[in-house]
């Protein structure tokens, strides 16, 4: 039974003593006040938390930025671990570079360049810090934007992370912040394109194997893979991404994404041609002439997807 001595300074019955107890901070403040009062009056009012020395609280961190703008350009190998090493470098040398470019297609510049080597353990440390200091959603956001077509995405990702390290979890709610909004917009753009592509992929049957070509702006293969794998669990299929020169291959129940320079599909069989013709015919029949509205069609199905879509290829 909780005795009178178990009553906390704030009046709560039990003292759990856990560091993350939401009453603890309040108690400590009260305790400190009581101690001060006791020191003045000379009486001991140190009741319940006797022997529990209040832990020293870390000094509130000054809100000065983690990194200061510097006239330097980072070059990295273009991989995600490579990017994390750039974050490491930026934080530990307290500098916010002008740009971060993959070394392969970096434009010539007069600014000082720093070649950032990729080291797995540094990358691992940075990656692990994101969910710990910000949130799991922030890590997902950064890794999604890495696959997006956002221009100068690396510097946007770095700025977001630096802000996140300072503000913590709430950074994901700061939808209107100049360092957060472009990240969310890029994520939305990628998500939107991935959703459209779920419908716009057109397979052809090549002797039992389904093959399709796409040319999206964002690298969306990892985002559409699970959908097609669950939908065509019994089939073998291949989706070739022409823009990013990669392919999603699913055969005998196993999926993988591999780099691929190009692909030549075999000639379509007679049955395949017949189904293609029927699909085109269906597509042309289903439209109502009295309601014709090409603008509306283009809004929903932008022309850049048409080259890979059987029914509208001919209209280009």
């Amino acid at each position: 039974m909780p005795g009178k001595s178990d009553v906390m300074p704030c009046g709560r019955r039990t003292y759990c003593g856990r560091a993350n107890c939401r009453h603890t901070a309040h108690c400590r403040k009260l305790e400190a006040q009581q101690e001060q009062a006791a020191a003045k009056s000379g009486a001991d009012v140190h009741g319940p938390a006797q022997g529990r020395a209040p832990r020293p609280r870390p000094a509130p961190s000054p809100k000065k930025p983690l990194a200061r703008p510097a006239d330097v350009v980072y070059l990295y190998d273009g991989s995600l671990p490579g990017f994390y090493c750039c974050v490491y470098e930026s934080v530990y040398s307290h500098e916010l570079p002008l740009a971060i470019w993959p070394e392969d297609d970096a434009p010539p510049t007069l600014f000082r360049q720093k070649l950032i080597a990729t080291e797995q353990d540094k990358a691992e440390r940075v990656r692990a810090s994101v969910p710990k200091k910000i949130s799991a959603a922030a890590l997902e956001l950064v890794e999604t934007v890495y696959l997006s077509c956002l221009a100068e995405k690396e510097i946007a990702m770095l700025r977001f992370l630096l802000l996140g390290y300072q503000r913590g979890r709430p950074v994901m709610q700061m939808l209107g912040h100049a360092d957060v909004a472009p990240m969310l917009a890029a994520q939305k753009h990628l998500g939107g394109e991935a959703h459209l592509l779920l419908g716009f992929v057109r397979f052809s049957d090549y002797d039992g194997v389904l093959g399709a070509t796409i040319s999206p702006k964002n690298f969306i293969l990892p985002f559409i893979a699970s959908h097609f794998v669950s939908r065509y669990a019994q089939e073998d299929f291949l989706i070739y991404d022409k823009t990013h020169k990669a392919a999603l291959i699913y055969e005998q129940g196993r999926q993988r994404i591999v780099p691929m320079e190009g692909i030549v599909f075999p000639k379509a069989s007679e049955a395949e041609e017949a189904y293609r013709a029927m699909w085109k015919q269906f597509y042309n029949t289903i439209s109502i002439e009295a309601r014709e509205n090409p603008r509306c069609r283009m809004t929903h199905m932008p022309k850049r997807y048409w080259e890979n879509m059987l029914e509208v290829q001919d209209l280009l």
Partner: peptide, 23 residues
């Protein structure tokens, strides 16, 4: 989600194309 057979459905639905009338 797919159950091993052919196909699956998504709650939001999925448009596969848009006809000349924009539907």
């Amino acid at each position: 989600p797919g159950g091993g057979g052919l196909g699956s459905t998504i709650a939001a639905g999925c448009c596969h194309s848009f006809s000349a009338d924009g539907r």
